Simulated assay, not measured.
Amino acid sequence: MTIKVIRGNPTPEELAAALAVVRARAAALAAAPSDAPEPTSAWSDPGRIAQHRVPHPSANAWSRTYWPA
């Protein structure tokens, strides 16, 4: 593994910290079983879109579609 600093002048401590993160991530990927599913992102969770209950249709439902409850 080769790390090359393109811009900036990191201190040895900063470079060691960055290298530790990269190596830990590589070790975690290598240790994961190949048939394990990828973790799903919170962005793909349909529950985050509908966080509030939708009012049930009724005679006055049209008036509640815009104004907060």
Rank of each mutant, 00 (worst) to 15 (best):
P39Q: 00
A36V: 11
N9Y: 07
L29Y: 05
P55A: 02
A27G: 00
D45H: 02
I49H: 10
A30R: 15
A32S: 01
D45M: 00
V5P: 02
L15Y: 01
R48S: 03
D35R: 11
S41C: 11
E13M: 08
A24K: 15
V22Y: 14
I3P: 05
S44P: 00
P39E: 01
L19C: 11
A59G: 10
P10L: 06
M1C: 06
I3L: 15
S34M: 10
P10D: 02
R53F: 09
L19N: 14
V5F: 04
R7I: 01
A69D: 06
T65P: 00
A28I: 03
R64W: 11
V54A: 08
V21S: 07
A32Y: 00
P33W: 03
N60G: 11
H52S: 12
A31M: 01
R64P: 01
W67P: 02
P10M: 04
V22C: 13
I3K: 15
W67Y: 13
E38H: 11
L29M: 09
E38W: 12
A30Q: 13
P68Y: 06
E38M: 14
L19R: 15
A27C: 00
G8L: 02
D45P: 02
A69M: 04
R25W: 11
L19V: 14
A16H: 08
Y66R: 13
A17K: 12
A42L: 12
A69H: 05
P12G: 06
A28R: 09
P55T: 02
A59F: 15
A17G: 07
V22L: 15
D45W: 00
S34E: 12
G47L: 07
S44W: 01
A24R: 15
P46K: 04
W43C: 03
S41N: 10
Q51H: 12
A16Q: 10
E14K: 08
P37R: 14
L15G: 00
P12M: 06
V21R: 11
A17I: 08
R53L: 09
R53G: 09
E14W: 02
R23S: 04
N60M: 09
A26Y: 01
I3A: 14
H52N: 12
A16V: 08
K4T: 14
S63D: 12
G47H: 12
D35Y: 09
P55Q: 03
P33Y: 03
E13R: 11
A32E: 03
G47E: 13
V54L: 10
A17T: 08
L29N: 09
L19D: 14
T40E: 09
R53M: 05
V21M: 06
